[in-house]
Design a protein around this nucleic acid. Structure first.
Lengths: 351, 351
DNA sequence: CTCCTGTATGGTAACGTTACCATGTGCTGA
DNA sequence: TCAGCACATGGTAACGTTACCATACAGGAG
């Protein structure tokens, strides 16, 4: 069907061994023969059969990635970062999506094992059992968990400094003069969510402000709609917040909608900060947001995979990923004395 | 290293042939032996080696997809749709990203050939040459182009009814009473862009309105920033448009920012419609947008691949993908008599 | 002259799976 | 009684690549 090393050997008047040596640039090959073989490869359009290679060397050249299927663009960005790093290291990335709550992860893991992937990145909160990890370990497949701590199960992990990112953002808000800083966040179930939630509290406390539980809204999930409801709720309080910190951009977008419906402007009437920086730059106005430092995610994943490959017995390691605060001016400076910011209307606005 | 059919055979006291028959549910196997084999498979955690299968049967079980690396979330959604359909058909999807203008597509195509993918989806405007298509054809790999017509090169294609989608959206705007409907679109280079652009013109003309060239803004690309600039430009015209149709959500987001900066409200002061529906539901307000009917993209891709595989000589076919208009109320109804919509201010807004 | 070493090339057994073919049973019908 | 059949199982040659060993010849050292 397709061109094989045998075809090349025949066309170049050499043996498969010699062709192999040319392809791998190893061993002794005379200049003359090397050229004949290279020409034949070029002329016939030979491409090495990866299946055969994988079978022989039990290295597929493929890194797997398992993500939870969701509307959250963050996972695709993370995946992107890994794609690039994998390719730079000579691998391709094969992504499988787990439908939430379908319990199909076991089959997906089996598929990865069958493909003999050279590494596996597990992104976000897929539900992998200890049994599956054991199977992966038996198959000698290095696993890296991203944004989800499986560290206690002996899995190498990438952990985002979410507590610091969250705390830092809140501190910035408070430093701008805000006293009533609300939180809109998903109900903390996953580690990520807990860390971001804790960061909010630490941020306030570290600035000498108490946490006002009335200003906290925990949503059932990440839908924009939940953000809108929470936002509307907060903004109709007798003493509404002057700033809202959201631990997800999608929620921030919802709060923005709520503000808009109330006729409030960001940042003049309400300061707003999102998280993940996946949507913020496209909103109007473009929002401040805490983003992950994507540049290091892919490379860290590959480093952990290579390290595990080199020494399967090494203790599980966690790499920390920094956050990056994108400042787009949606936190207004409030003077200490005045409770309301002076607002200047455009001519058009007043007709 | 990992468990093979041989291990199962030994454990179950059978031969590899018998194990093979159990796995494939073909040929004669006694109930007793079948059970022994199945138990061994379960107990040892046997997973078929795909590399060996692929080598033997020259079917890898992998569909490739090639996308242009870009911030546009649309491609990921399309990819998602294909992932699901591929999986439903028993394949995995392996995605490679081409960096724009890097000319690395040749290498990527070679990688796909080396992997012996059973099909290849080319998404968006990657630059594939005739030579590459020839190589793919020689390797008997069915190719489907999505959102990019390579039909003239004899490649099966998925074409979105963009002209109709665009025209329909404009007609809806006009029917709501708008006379000055502006366009913000990337300079039409690709077929997609031309179709969407043409749809705008047809939409206006079909409603008996002339095209006012002063209301057309063509941007150098899809950045939100271009939308903002174009929007600011349009809104400062002596006779500004009452509605803006954008052929991309990212551009619409920019126009929204411009409107916001001018103190205009959507839809009360300005009606706004986006395209691709990838961002619209997260904006504030959530915008009307023309989306692709994702449900049919993946299945169509797989159908075309299977059809091509069944008959490599069949003439190239184009499948049409419908658009879906998402109405979120950002097109205001304008009465025929009055040129301006009565605007009601909230109390807060007037202090 | 032999031995060794460097250079150059060819042969071949795996890797795990699958598609055949071969070789058995035991049973039925002529 | 035996051909013919359904049933049941085992053996083995590929698939394309790679790792290793074998072979061969030159030229220089001993």
């Amino acid at each position: 069907m397709s061109v094989t090393m045998n075809d090349i050997a025949r066309a170049a008047g050499a043996s498969v061994s010699t062709v192999g040596r040319v392809i791998h640039n190893s061993g002794y090959v005379s200049r003359e023969v090397r050229e004949r073989v290279e020409q034949a490869i070029e002329r016939l359009g030979y491409v090495p059969n990866q299946s055969a290679r994988a079978l022989k060397s039990s290295r597929s050249g493929i890194i797997g990635s398992l993500v939870l299927q969701s509307a959250n663009g963050l996972y695709y960005r993370i995946n992107d970062s890994i794609i690039r790093a994998a390719r730079a290291a000579g691998y391709e990335l094969l992504t499988m999506e787990a439908q939430p709550g379908q319990g199909m992860e076991g089959h997906l893991i089996d598929s990865f094992i069958g493909l003999h992937v050279d590494g596996l990145a597990i992104i976000s909160n897929t539900s992998i059992t200890g049994e599956m990890f054991a199977k992966l370990r038996a198959a000698a497949i290095p696993v890296v968990a991203v944004e989800r701590g499986y560290l206690e199960m002996g899995v190498d992990s990438l952990v985002v400094r979410d507590l610091e990112g969250s705390r830092d953002a809140v501190q910035r808000i408070v430093r701008s003069g805000h006293k009533r800083v609300a939180l809109v966040a998903p109900r903390p179930a996953l580690d990520v969510e807990k860390r971001r939630y804790a960061g909010y509290r630490e941020g306030l406390e570290s600035m000498g402000l108490g946490v006002d539980e009335r200003l906290i809204r925990l949503t059932p999930g990440y839908d924009t709609q939940y953000g809108r409801i929470a936002g509307a709720d907060l903004l109709s309080l007798p003493e509404p917040p002057t700033a809202v910190f959201c631990t997800a951009d999608t929620l921030a977008a919802g709060v923005l909608q709520a503000a808009y419906q109330k006729g409030l402007r960001v940042p003049e009437d309400l300061s707003l900060v999102g998280y993940d920086d996946v949507l913020s730059q496209s909103l109007s106005p473009a929002l401040n947001s805490v983003g992950l430092f994507m540049g290091s995610i892919g490379p860290c994943v590959m480093e952990l995979i290579e390290a595990r490959r080199a020494d399967p017995e090494r203790p599980a390691e966690a790499r920390m990923i920094d956050t990056v605060y994108a400042d787009r001016g949606t936190v207004a400076v409030r003077s200490a004395r005045k409770e309301t910011v002076i607002r200047i209307y455009d001519e058009e606005e007043l007709l």
